[in-house]
Simulated scan of single mutants.
Amino acid sequence: MAEVEIPSTSPDNRKMAGKEEIIDELKRQGYDIEVFEHPEVFTVETMMPYVGHLPGVHTKNFFLKDKKKKGLWLMTVKHDREVNLGKISKEVGAPGGLRFADESIMLDKIGVGQGCVTPIALYNDKNKDVKFILDSDIINGGHERMYCHPMVNSATIGIKPEDFKSFIESTGHSPILLNF
C-alpha cells in the first residue's frame, strides 16, 4: 500500500498533530504511556504478532459517516469484537446507518490516513465534528493498559484506561459507551 501524504494543516490553517506531537502532549498532561515501534501494519491481524503479548486490551478503530452525511463517527472497540454497523447505527441514532468514510475526510478532520485510525486523533478534531463511540469494556474492563496507534501505524502506545478516558475528555469529546 502506498504511503499517504498527510497534510500539515487543516482547512482553517491549524497544524495537525502527528506522532511526536501527540506523544509529547500525552506526556505533558502527565500520562504514563509506553511506546512500541514496529513495522507498518494495516490490519489488527498483522499488528498482533508485534504487540499481542503486551498486557491489556488491544483496539481496532473505524472512521465512519452516517448515510445522510450529517455526522462523522470514530469507533474504538476491542480488537477481537464482531462489529455490526446496522445495530450500532440504531444504538447511536445515526441517520440512515453508518458507512465507512473516505480517507480524504479522515485526513481533513483528524489528520490520519487509512491504517492509522486511532482515538488519539480526536486531539486534531478542534471543531468537535466527530462523535466518539467506545467499547465500554476498554474503560470498565479492569485492563492494565489499552493500546492504539499514536497517529501512525508503525507504532503502538499503551496507556492506562482511566488516563485514556481523561485524555479523550480533554479534547472536548465525550465517549458514547456501548456494550458489545
Rank of each mutant, 00 (worst) to 15 (best):
V4H: 08
S8I: 15
S8D: 13
P11K: 06
P11G: 08
D12N: 11
A17H: 08
A17D: 06
E20A: 06
L26R: 00
R28I: 02
D32Y: 00
F36V: 13
F36P: 02
E37N: 14
P39L: 09
P39V: 10
V41T: 14
F42I: 09
T43M: 11
V44D: 08
T46N: 11
M47I: 04
Y50Q: 11
V51T: 15
G52Y: 03
H53T: 08
P55Q: 04
N61S: 15
F63T: 01
L64G: 00
D66K: 10
K67T: 12
K67M: 07
K70C: 03
G71E: 08
L72N: 07
M75G: 00
V77P: 07
K78W: 10
K78L: 14
D80S: 06
R81Y: 14
E82G: 09
N84K: 12
K87V: 10
I88M: 03
S89P: 08
S89G: 12
S89A: 08
S89W: 07
S89H: 09
V92Y: 10
G93D: 13
G96T: 07
L98V: 06
R99Q: 10
F100E: 05
A101G: 09
S104F: 09
I105T: 10
I105S: 12
M106H: 03
L107R: 04
L107W: 01
K109A: 10
I110F: 06
V112I: 14
V112F: 01
V112E: 03
Q114M: 13
Q114P: 02
G115Y: 07
C116Q: 08
V117H: 03
T118I: 05
P119C: 13
I120R: 01
I120L: 14
A121D: 03
Y123F: 12
N124G: 05
V130G: 01
F132W: 06
I138A: 01
I139D: 02
I139H: 01
N140G: 06
Y147T: 08
C148T: 09
H149G: 05
M151F: 07
M151Y: 01
M151E: 04
N153D: 13
S154H: 15
A155C: 12
A155P: 08
I157E: 02
G158I: 00
I159Q: 01
K160C: 06
P161R: 06
P161D: 10
P161T: 09
D163H: 06
D163W: 00
D163V: 02
K165G: 01
S166V: 00
E169N: 12
E169T: 11
T171H: 04
G172L: 03
S174K: 12
S174E: 13
N179M: 12
N179E: 15
